[in-house]
Each structure stands twice: as C-alpha cells, then as structure tokens.
C-alpha cells in the first residue's frame, strides 16, 4: 500500500507556488491553473522514480482525480 499522505504531498510538489496546498485525493488535478503538459511529464517521472511504475500520457489523460492516479499505480504494482 502506498502511503496516501506521502503520495498526495509528492503530487502537490508538481505545482508551482504552492497553489495545490489544498489538494485532496478527490481533487481534479488538471483543474489547477498551472497544470499543463510539463506538469504531466514531471508527475510521470516522479511516479517512475518513486514507485518504479511506467504510466503513459494517455493513461494519465484518462484520470481526473488524484485518487484515480493513485489507484492506477496500485493496480500496476499489483500486476507487476
């Protein structure tokens, strides 16, 4: 099990100027103002680094809430 608090913290760190301070697992992460393709690339690199899980950009496009990404990682780890 990935620690949700730690995961959320890592997720928040992808955003500039602390704009994602209030982010929760239910937040729609693409709706924060600084979200863009660079944020996506950085987030995917972070996930690969932390959890050794490869997520494609298309798969990320299919996620809307932070929890969706979390579950996708858990699923990939379980099937690894």
């Amino acid at each position: 099990m990935i620690d949700t608090q730690k995961f959320l913290q890592e997720f928040k760190e992808q955003y500039v100027d602390g704009e994602a301070t209030g982010m929760t697992m239910d937040s729609e992460f693409k709706k924060f103002p600084s979200w863009d393709s660079l944020t996506a690339i950085s987030l995917l690199a972070e996930i690969k680094y932390r959890y050794n899980v490869d997520i494609e950009e298309d798969e990320l496009n299919g996620c809307s809430r932070v929890a969706d990404v979390y579950h996708l990682i858990e699923k990939k780890i379980a099937h690894a």
């Binding site: 393709s37 660079l38 690339i41 690199a45 690969k48």
Partner: peptide, 11 residues
C-alpha cells in the same frame, strides 16, 4: 519528444 528527453535527463 519532451517526455522522453525529460526522462533521459532526470534518470
């Protein structure tokens, strides 16, 4: 390909 170059660099 921004993602590939990003990954090459940071890893």
């Amino acid at each position: 390909d921004g993602k590939e170059i990003f990954d090459f660099t940071v890893f």
